Simulated scan of single mutants.
Amino acid sequence: MRIREFTEADWAQVWPIVEDVIVAQETFPYDPTWSAEVAHDVWVERPPGRTVVAEEGGSVLGTAKMGANRPGPGAHVATASFLVAAAARGRGVGRALCEDALEWARARGFAAMQFNAVVETNEAAVRLYRRLGFTVIGTVPEAFAHPTLGRVGLHVMHRRL
């Protein structure tokens, strides 16, 4: 598996991953009615941000986007988001994408990385982020409408770089 910069030619494989995750409405706070065009505009970061894919044998297994969490006085803190294809889960794709994002942020002089909306019931992601040094610094109660569990919290997770 290798992680590389996203190219427009990748969208044909990235869009089904994005669509699958947002339509499930279990782990990501994106609107499940978004078209491919809207999702593309939200997912693909413009410089100085970055979008990548994890691929193996020409197949995209996952994707990540990263950049400054906020502009201006908040621009020293990075943020990132990760999506892994259902068939590739449990194979270390998410970990590789997150480690790549951390290295990217470190190399660009960011002081920390913050995730603004980790669904608290997304146990695999929360467990991974904790293993990579993130802590939950707060949880917004009932901020995410889970399709089967009802309203659950969104964690804000943070780690210094």
Score class of each variant (00 low, 15 high):
66 M>H: 02
73 P>V: 13
31 D>A: 14
136 V>R: 04
108 R>D: 01
148 T>F: 07
110 F>H: 13
117 A>L: 10
157 M>E: 02
102 L>D: 02
44 V>E: 10
112 A>M: 03
117 A>W: 01
140 V>W: 13
42 V>W: 14
147 P>A: 08
142 E>M: 03
31 D>F: 04
37 E>K: 01
74 G>N: 02
153 G>T: 04
1 M>I: 02
29 P>G: 09
103 E>P: 02
122 N>L: 06
79 T>D: 14
39 A>D: 09
61 L>C: 07
101 A>F: 04
71 P>V: 14
146 H>A: 05
123 E>M: 09
35 S>I: 00
9 A>K: 15
7 T>D: 13
106 R>F: 12
32 P>M: 02
29 P>Y: 07
39 A>S: 13
80 A>F: 14
155 H>R: 04
74 G>A: 12
125 A>S: 15
61 L>M: 13
76 H>R: 12
110 F>R: 10
148 T>K: 14
72 G>F: 10
16 P>W: 04
79 T>Y: 06
111 A>N: 10
138 G>A: 13
65 K>R: 15
18 V>N: 14
78 A>G: 07
98 C>T: 05
107 A>L: 14
29 P>E: 02
158 H>R: 05
129 Y>Q: 10
35 S>C: 09
37 E>C: 00
110 F>K: 07
3 I>P: 01
18 V>F: 15
60 V>Q: 13
100 D>Q: 10
75 A>Y: 11
146 H>Q: 04
65 K>M: 10
24 A>Y: 00
157 M>W: 09
128 L>T: 05
16 P>L: 06
70 R>V: 11
160 R>G: 14
114 Q>Y: 04
38 V>R: 08
29 P>T: 15
103 E>C: 14
148 T>R: 15
156 V>L: 09
106 R>D: 11
97 L>R: 11
10 D>L: 01
143 A>N: 07
94 G>S: 06
95 R>I: 07
64 A>D: 01
124 A>V: 04
145 A>M: 11
77 V>I: 03
101 A>M: 10
124 A>I: 00
81 S>F: 02
155 H>A: 10
85 A>H: 11
147 P>M: 05
158 H>Y: 15
59 S>E: 15
131 R>V: 03
74 G>Q: 00
44 V>M: 13
34 W>R: 09
104 W>N: 00
11 W>D: 13
21 V>S: 05
11 W>Y: 14
128 L>H: 06
107 A>C: 05
108 R>K: 05
122 N>D: 07
28 F>A: 12
43 W>C: 06
66 M>V: 01
130 R>A: 14
102 L>Y: 06
137 I>Y: 11
161 L>M: 12
13 Q>I: 04
13 Q>S: 06
9 A>H: 12
24 A>W: 00
115 F>I: 12
161 L>P: 05
101 A>N: 03
153 G>M: 05
60 V>C: 07
42 V>A: 10
93 V>E: 05
3 I>F: 15
14 V>A: 04
113 M>R: 06
81 S>L: 09
94 G>M: 05
140 V>L: 15
50 R>F: 11
26 E>V: 02
54 A>L: 08
151 R>I: 11
72 G>Y: 12
43 W>N: 00
21 V>M: 04
85 A>I: 01
